[in-house]
């Protein structure tokens, strides 16, 4: 035993947050803004070659001019249209087949090997084949996007349905739900969180694929803008295209997040996120 007096541990109210109280929205804007500012500075100081890395201010000027001529909106519209049509064409069958494969071990056992074999093929590698079959026009662009989206939705829907606790299906069975009722009231809502994750990935995939597909058989679209700028060495225009693609991707994420929060109100996590800073 020592003669030392015992230490006293005090637990007190946390000090009020005063100095830096940044909202998450502000923080979210801060990183891209800082990146742009840094980039601008580095180009102005001629540390970066402006031929390959034009200053963001120059890109914005080019973007503004292209906006005024209406060209930029045209390109954006075409890309958006291809992505959305392709997305619906791929997502709907992916979702439906995913539900069936999730609920039926039979169908799953039958189709899984084929899907496992086709899935790893990079979707853009199918583009030449698709253009041979469907020609150079719009359908081949929708279809390549649809294929990419289909697999994302299919796999995440299957995973979602398989992740549903068995007891919920037992309840539906005990209450004599028909097959269709079980799909609508248990499989679909239960798999929805996973389906949303699949949609997010699918949209990202759709953008990648469409930009590559727009290298062929079209003179409109953000992908076309990037490829043509490459051919004529209009690097600033290329950046305009890249920026718009990034913006589209960001808006897609934003829209999906909105939709998810609305449809998944029943999840504690989704609601808790809103309340906490």
């Amino acid at each position: 035993m020592s003669d030392r007096p015992p230490d006293i541990v005090l637990i007190r109210p946390a000090p009020a947050e005063t100095a830096l109280h940044l909202s998450p929205a502000l923080l979210a804007v801060a990183s891209p803004l800082l990146l742009l500012l840094g980039w601008e500075a580095v180009v102005r100081l001629a540390w970066l070659d402006a031929r390959f890395f034009p200053a963001p201010s120059d890109v914005l000027v080019a973007l503004w001019q292209m906006l005024l001529t209406g060209m930029l909106l045209q390109h954006t519209f075409w890309t958006l249209q291809r992505v959305l049509i392709g997305f619906v064409l791929g997502a709907v069958p992916g979702l439906l087949l995913g539900l069936v494969m999730g609920l039926s071990p039979w169908v799953r056992a039958f189709l899984k090997p084929a899907i496992a074999a086709i899935y790893p093929i990079p979707k853009v590698a199918l583009l030449p084949l698709i253009m041979m079959i469907f020609g150079l026009g719009e359908p081949s662009k929708w279809i390549i996007v649809a294929i990419a989206v289909f697999f994302q939705l299919l796999l995440s829907t299957i995973a979602g349905v398989l992740g549903i606790e068995r007891i919920y299906l037992d309840v539906a069975r005990n209450l004599h739900a028909t097959r269709l009722q079980a799909y609508a009231s248990v499989a679909l809502p239960g798999a929805l969180p996973s389906i949303f994750a699949g949609c997010q990935l699918g949209l990202g995939m759709a953008l990648i694929v469409v930009v590559i597909a727009e290298n062929f058989g079209t003179d409109a679209g953000l992908g076309y803008l990037v490829w043509r700028s490459w051919q004529v060495f209009e690097v600033t225009d290329m950046y305009v295209g890249l920026m718009m693609i990034a913006l589209l991707g960001y808006l897609f994420q934003l829209a999906m997040g909105r939709l998810e929060r609305r449809l998944l109100r029943w999840r504690p996590a989704a609601t808790a996120m809103k309340g906490t800073p």
Binding site: L175, S185, V186, W266
Partner: peptide, 22 residues
């Protein structure tokens, strides 16, 4: 059932009425 078997994606009202809705 022994463990919680009410559907997390339905409100209390929807859960209670589930059998009737089916």
């Amino acid at each position: 059932f022994q463990e919680s078997s009410i559907f997390p994606w339905m409100t209390v009202r929807q859960n209670v009425g589930y059998g009737l809705r089916l």
